[in-house]
Design a protein around this nucleic acid. Sequence first.
DNA 1: CTGAAAGCGCTAACAC
DNA 2: GTGTTAGCGCTTTCAG
Lengths: 344, 344
Amino acid sequence: MNLTLEDIGRLAGVSRSTVSRVINDQDSVRLAVRERVQEVIRLTGYTPNAAARSLVSGRTGVIGLVIPSRVHSLFEDPYFSRLIQGISAASNQAGNTLSLFLFQNEEEEAELYPRVITSGFLDGLILTATRMADPLLARTAVGEIPIVVVGRPDVEGVSYVDVDNRGGALKAATHLSSLGYQRIGLLGAPVSTTAGLDRLNGFVEGLAACGLPLPPDLRVDGDFSEASGYVAMRKLLAHQPDAVFAASDTMALGALRALKEAGIRVPQDMALVGFDGLPGSENSVPSITTIRQPVTETGARAVHILNDLVTGVATAPIVEIMPVELVIRESSGTSRDSAGSDVE
Amino acid sequence: MNLTLEDIGRLAGVSRSTVSRVINDQDSVRLAVRERVQEVIRLTGYTPNAAARSLVSGRTGVIGLVIPSRVHSLFEDPYFSRLIQGISAASNQAGNTLSLFLFQNEEEEAELYPRVITSGFLDGLILTATRMADPLLARTAVGEIPIVVVGRPDVEGVSYVDVDNRGGALKAATHLSSLGYQRIGLLGAPVSTTAGLDRLNGFVEGLAACGLPLPPDLRVDGDFSEASGYVAMRKLLAHQPDAVFAASDTMALGALRALKEAGIRVPQDMALVGFDGLPGSENSVPSITTIRQPVTETGARAVHILNDLVTGVATAPIVEIMPVELVIRESSGTSRDSAGSDVE
DNA sequence: CTGAAAGCGCTAACAC
DNA sequence: GTGTTAGCGCTTTCAG
C-alpha cells in the first residue's frame, strides 16, 4: 500500500494530524471521529511508513542482536538456540523488531559494527558471547546507542544480564559434599570466559565452605563441548575423584561417556553434576543432576532492560543476575554411604 | 553522532548535495572535492541516517527472514543453523541487514506478519520451512514486497530456491541398487512437506529405473527426528530389508541406533544411506553415506534472488534448484556380494 | 561539476 | 478537539 496519513485523512474527512493522533493512541480525539478513522484504516489496511516515522521520532523500534564471529560453531548449541528464542519472543511482545548480526569474521565485525551502531537504524543492541577484552565492547565505549550484554562482561560500566554462575557452582559443591563425597573433582569451563571463571570460583568457594579443598590434579578444564568433557574426564579418572562437577551439561554428557567406557557406574561409583539444565541432560542414562539456568528469561530480561535504556526509563549501567536452581536427578541421586546399591 | 549532510558539507566547504553525491559514489564530483569530503567524513565518523535515506529512496536495505511458529524445535537443527548462517553471510556481503522473525505461535504470526510486510521497513522477505497451504504464503498473494521461499512451496507463482530432493533420492536408490541390494526400504520424511514428498517420489523413481519395487511394508515415515528414525527402523526390521534409505541424516542416525541394538551390522548386514550431508553423519560409527545438499549456498542464493527482485533486475517468479551430491561412506561402502566381510 | 530547492511520510508544536 | 505548519535528513531534479 502506498497510502499516507493524508490519504487516510481525506477518506475519513479529517486532517492528517488527527489520523496521526488516532494511530498513536492519543486521547484528545472525539470518539466518533476516532472510530471513523479506525474504520478507514482497517478497510484500507493502512500501515504507517516506518522510515518516516523514525525520521521524526528518532526511534526505529529495531533492536540488534550481535553474535560475534567465533561462536558460529555454537550456534546450534541449545543454549544459543533458546537464548535467541527468548530474545525474539520478548522483542515481538515489546513491539520491537529484531535484527540479527552474525559476524563471519573479525573483518566483517570491524567493518559492519561501526555502521550498525551509528546509522540510527537501531535503537539499541544486545551483545552475546562476548569474550575477555572484546573489541566490540571496547568500541562501544564511544557510547552511541544503549547496549545490554548477556553474560558478565569483563569491563565496568556496561549493563548486563547474567545468571548466577558463582552461586550455581557453589550449590553444586555443597550438594555433592552433603551427600558425603570427599574427593570432588572439577571439569571446568575455560577461564577465559567470565562464566567459566565464575563457575570455578563458586565451586572452590562451595568446597571451602564444606571444608574441602580442590587439589590441582582434581581439576581439568574443557571448552564446553561434549568431546572436551570426554577427554577431561579421562584425565581426571587417573586421580580417582569420587564425584565430579562439570561446568556444563554438554561436558557432563562427555564425561558420562568416558565413565561408561571405563566401566564406572554413575551414581554408584561416581556422582556427576552438570550445569545449564538444557534439554538432553534429562534424557541421558542416568539422567544428570544439574544447575538449571533460566535461559529464555535471561533473554527476555535483556530485551526489557534495553528498552528501559532506550526510552530513558532507566539510565545505564543496569545489572541483573538471574537465579539458578539445583535440579537433582539420577546422577547424584544417592548419598555416598548408600552408593553401591542401585537407585530405584 | 548527530551530524548531518549539511554539517559535513559546511566542514568541507561544499553543499549537502555534493556530499550526498560523494557518499553515493556518483561520478560527477571533481576528484579534489571528493577527496576533501571523504576526509571530513572519515575524520568525523559520519554515517548517513538510515531512516532519512530510506524515506526518500523507498528502500531500507533490510531483508526479513521468517521462521514460522512450528519450527522452533528445529531451530537447533544443524540444517537451520547453517541455513541462517548462509543467509546472514550473503546478506552482510550484499550490504543488507537481516531481520529475524521467529513467530512463537499462529496468533503472533497473524498479527505481526501483515505489519512486517507493509510497513515499508523491509525490502523483501525470505520464508523458510513453509508448510503445505501455508497461511503466510497465502497472505503473501497480496504481493506487497518481494518474497523468496527456501524449499519448494506448494503454490504456483512464487520465487523459490530448493535443493534437488527428487534427484538426490533417485541417486540414493540407484546407488544401493548398483551395489546389488534388492530389498531396499525407505525411512521417509513426512509427505506433508514438499521435501518429504519429493524425496519419496525420487526414490521410487530411482528404484523403478533399476527394476525394483517399493513394497508398502518397506516404507515407514518419520518426522526428520532421530527418535522417529529409531522407531521407524524398528518397524522396518520386521520386513527384512537388506538396505535402507533414510530421508534425513538425523533419521539415519536413529536407524543406526536401532540397528546396533538389534545386533545388525552396518554395512555388513544392512546398508544405510541418509540425506543432508550435515556434520554428524560423518562422525558416526560407521560413517553414513549421504546425499549432501549445499545448505549455505542455498541460503546465499535466496538472498541474491531476493535482491534481484528488489532492485527490479529480475521479475518474479524465479526458481532455482541446487544440485546435490552422493557422498559414499562406510555405511554403504561395500557391495552386497562382499557383504559379510569387514570393510577395510 | 556544483548548488538550490522540492519533497519523501510522519510527528509535534502551535493556532483556532 | 482538530487543523496548520514546520521540519526530521536525505536524494534528486533542475539551474547555472
